[in-house]
């Protein structure tokens, strides 16, 4: 099937969702579910407001900072543990424990410890993406063919060559899948943390809409954060996948 045909088929599920949404909204006469048209109007209103871009930027920066911070540490620790299976096996239960903790636990604790501000969304994203990316990196590194490391031993590769010529290219596909998943978590967790513990950002805006029962605006902000996720996924992750 050609790429153009693939793209057309990709639109079909979106159209079905839109129809379902319109149908549900029509059934309850727009009381608790705004119509797609109302949401579109609210969306246009939001993006014409300069403050919207500041909120958007705040959310993106908090999310990306947490993702990059958690990601860097997870990749470093994951590669190390992937090459040292005994240490990996030893730390795995702790990682599973952190991974099992719902973000709301971190948000509650961090609000007590750090109060409202940038630190809460950053730290919650950091703690949420770290276990996912750590497990992903360590598993991919453990799965690397030992024969490549024999080659490296014979030709006396430096640590840097080990990393850049064998490990990173060897785990890049697994890493891209992990980052794609972590990116999804990032926006959900950033918005949730902002909902409870920030004065600006998309999550804080959603909280304001909820308090004022401004449902078309709430839907519009939700649409905006979903679009951010899709665009950043396309810009960052797809590039890694293609490499």
């Amino acid at each position: 099937m050609t790429t153009a045909k693939h793209k057309i088929w990709g639109i079909v599920p979106l159209l079905i969702c839109l129809l379902l949404w319109g149908g549900l909204s029509w059934l309850n006469q727009g009381r608790v579910i705004p119509t797609p048209l109302e949401t579109a109007r609210a969306f246009l209103g939001i993006i014409q407001d300069p403050e919207c871009w500041q909120d958007l930027l705040a959310t993106i920066l908090r999310g990306l900072a947490g993702l990059l911070g958690g990601g860097m540490l997870a990749i470093t620790a994951g590669i190390f543990c992937g090459r040292h299976p005994k240490i990996h096996d030893a730390v795995s239960p702790v990682i599973t424990l952190v991974q099992s903790c719902p973000p709301i636990v971190w948000i509650s604790l961090l609000l007590v410890w750090l109060s409202i501000g940038n630190a809460v969304p950053f730290t919650v994203v950091f703690l949420s993406v770290f276990p996912v990316l750590f497990v992903n990196t360590a598993t991919a590194t453990r799965g690397l063919d030992e024969r490549w490391f024999e080659l490296a031993k014979i030709y006396r590769f430096s640590r840097w060559k080990h990393l850049t010529a064998i490990i990173l290219p060897g785990i890049s596909q697994g890493l891209a899948a992990g980052f794609s998943y972590a990116l999804g978590i990032t926006w959900k967790v950033t918005a949730t943390a902002e909902f409870f513990g920030a004065q600006n950002g998309i999550g804080a805006r959603i909280y304001k809409c909820y308090r004022e029962m401004a449902l078309p605006q709430l839907f519009a902000w939700t649409l905006l954060i979903a679009m951010v996720g899709v665009v950043i996924e396309a810009l960052l992750i797809q590039k890694i996948r293609r490499k």
Binding site: R147, W148, E150, L151, I154, A165, I166, P169, G170
Partner: peptide, 12 residues
């Protein structure tokens, strides 16, 4: 210098 039986060229 080692020429491996299975060649071991890095595919990337």
């Amino acid at each position: 210098g080692f020429a491996f039986q299975d060649q071991r060229l890095l595919p990337w």
